[in-house]
Write a protein that binds this DNA or RNA. Sequence first.
DNA 1: ATTTTCATTGAAATAGTATTCAATAAAATT
DNA 2: AATTTTATTGAATACTATTTCAATGAAAAT
Lengths: 195, 195
Amino acid sequence: MSIRHEQKEQRRALILQSALDLFIRKGYGETKVADIAKAADMSMGLLFHYFDSKEKLYEELIRIGCERLKMDFNFMNESPLAIFTAAAEDLFDMIRTNPSAAKMFVLMENAQHLDSLSEDLKEMLTEADKLIKKSISLIEKGQLLGEIKQGNAEALAVAFWCSIQGIAQYIALHPETPCPNSMWVISILENREVE
Amino acid sequence: MSIRHEQKEQRRALILQSALDLFIRKGYGETKVADIAKAADMSMGLLFHYFDSKEKLYEELIRIGCERLKMDFNFMNESPLAIFTAAAEDLFDMIRTNPSAAKMFVLMENAQHLDSLSEDLKEMLTEADKLIKKSISLIEKGQLLGEIKQGNAEALAVAFWCSIQGIAQYIALHPETPCPNSMWVISILENREVE
DNA sequence: ATTTTCATTGAAATAGTATTCAATAAAATT
DNA sequence: AATTTTATTGAATACTATTTCAATGAAAAT
C-alpha cells in the first residue's frame, strides 16, 4: 500500500488546490467541474472518483479553511490596541508566507453569501461578522484609554477588518505583489492626537 | 405613448437593480435568471423581452458602472496626500449616500476576473489595477515631501486602495452599517513621524 | 369600433453542466 | 501466475438553466 496511497493523497491535494484557485478567481458558479479537472490535469470522471460532487469538494475546502483560520484573540491581559496589533501581525504573516492561506481567507469570505450550503457549514462561517461585533467593545475600551481614535466603534471595526480583508483578497489574486506592512492598517485605529 | 413608455423604463430599472444586488451577493454564475425574474417580480419570459441574455444584462450593468465611477485624480497642482484625501472623500461620500453606487463598485471589482466578457468591456475594467499603478509615483513624491510614510510604494498603494475596496464591499452588502470616515484610511498613508 | 402594437405568460426547445457508468489498464494481493 | 482491487477514461445520462415561442390580453392608434 504505497505507490497508490501516496498518489491518492497527492491527487486529492492537487484537486483541492486547483479548485481553490479557481473558486476565488471566478466564483463557485462560474467554475465548472471541467475547469477544475483541466487545471488538475485529469478527466472529469476521475475527479468524481475523488469527490462525490462539486459541492462536497467546495465544502471540504471550507472545512480546511475553518481549521486553519480559526483564531481567537482573547488575550485579556493585553491592551486593546496591542490585541489588534497582534491579530493583524498574525494575519499578515499568514498572507505573506502562505499563499494558499490567503486564498482560503478569500474563499471563506465569499462562501458566506452562498445559499446552497449546509447549515453547519454556514454556522462556521459567520465568524467574520462575529469578529466585527466582538471588536466593538474592545475598541470602546481602547478609546477610553486614549489608545484608539474617537469615532463610531462599529465603523472603526468595519474599517479595520475590511481593510485587512480587501488587502488579503488582492494578495491572494496577485501573489507577486509586495505585501503591505501590518502596522499600516493599525494606523486606522491608532489615536495620534497629543493628549 | 406614456403609460407603456414609463413602465418600460421602470421595469428595466427594476431588473437592473435586482440583478445588481444578486450579482454582488451571489456572484454571476450562482445568480440564475429565474432568481432575477423572481426578485423583479416577473416571468423569465418577460425578462428576456427587456434583455437579450443574462450576459447582456450583466454587461449593461458594467457599462452603467463605468459611467458612474469614472474618476481621474489629476489635480497636478495639489500635494500628493491632498489628492488621495480628496479621492477617498469622494468615494466614501458616494458609498455613504448612494447604496447602488457602492454595489457598482463591488460589481466592477468582481467583473475583472470573469472570463466570458467582451474585450472592450474588459479593457474598461482594468481601471482598478491602473489606479494602483498610477498611485505609485504619486506616493513616492509624497514620501520625498515627508507627507507619506516610508515603505514600499506599491505596497502602500495596495494597502490604501484595497482597504477602500474592502470597506465598500462590506457596506454594499450590509447597507445598514455605519460608514467609516474617509480620513481613517488616509492614516494608512500619512506620515506621523516628527521631522 | 377596429386594428395594430406590444407587454406578458407558461410551456416547449435548446444548450450547458454535473454525474454516472461500462470498459480498460495498472497496481496490489493471493 | 492468477485474482482482486482500484485508478483512469470517454461516452452516456440526468439534470439544470437559458432562451425561444405561440398564445393572450391590454394599451395605443386608426
